[in-house]
Write a protein that binds this DNA or RNA. Structure first.
Lengths: 115, 115
DNA sequence: CTTCATGCTATGTTTTCCGTAGCGTTTTGT
DNA sequence: ACAAAACGCTACGGAAAACATAGCATGAAG
């Protein structure tokens, strides 16, 4: 397993700068989604699989990466965000609201330009 | 080309909820990176390719998606964030700072637990 | 009219992801 | 006690995405 952590070589960047490592991690399928699905509390492996609508192999890969990155941990109640993970997610929470406004905007744009 | 826009079917979610469409879009390789590289101003296709350390085919795919999503536009000076794109990026700007703190934290965690 | 930069396509290889089946273990129910 | 269910997770084959490189068409500049 190629661990993702700051300072290590990263897809698309040899510098290993933290921001690049982070963008690399977050740019993998289901990473953002998993963090998102954990926003309200811990989930079991299988619940997470259902919530994120993915398969065990990808999920397991992502969880391994997220655990190594210190963003997710596996305790008694299942998988949960670490304090660090909660910090990161906090940055994304505004996205929920923004996404709805985006939806309206883009619909409008499409109508203006489209058929 | 499978356009990404809110309300459409999305990888990993049939609901088409805006947030899911957004997470899908952002969870593709180089999407976040491209937005990030455009944070300081417009770049030409080739400059962007260099900055993001990617290849023309992926870059072109991402740019098409980002344009359809109304986040990036192609004008005289090259590719640039739209107002909407700048809004979205604004959400991510704190990541830069956060990533550095993350780097320190994770290094410490690794040292504590590791060899 | 050559040279250069631009935006982009084409092609083949490698990597990643997907979908399903299933294993070993622990909990739950009877 | 024992079957049934849920748990975390692995294996594997096929599909899709990404990577790397080459090259083309256009337009501006020398």
């Amino acid at each position: 397993m190629k661990a993702i952590s700051p300072g290590r070589k990263v897809r698309g960047s040899k510098t290993g700068k933290p921001i690049m490592a982070l963008l690399d991690l977050l740019g993998r399928r289901m990473t953002l989604r998993v963090l998102w699905e954990l926003r309200e509390g811990p989930l079991t492996f299988r619940a997470l699989q259902t919530a994120a609508a993915t398969n065990p192999s990808v999920l397991n890969t992502r969880l391994a990466e997220l655990r190594q990155a210190g963003l997710v941990a596996h305790e008694g109640e299942g998988y949960a965000l670490t304090p660090l993970g909660r910090e990161l997610l906090a940055v994304f929470l505004p996205l929920h609201v923004w996404a709805d406004r985006w939806a309206d905007k883009v619909r409008v744009e499409v109508r203006k330009g489209g058929a």
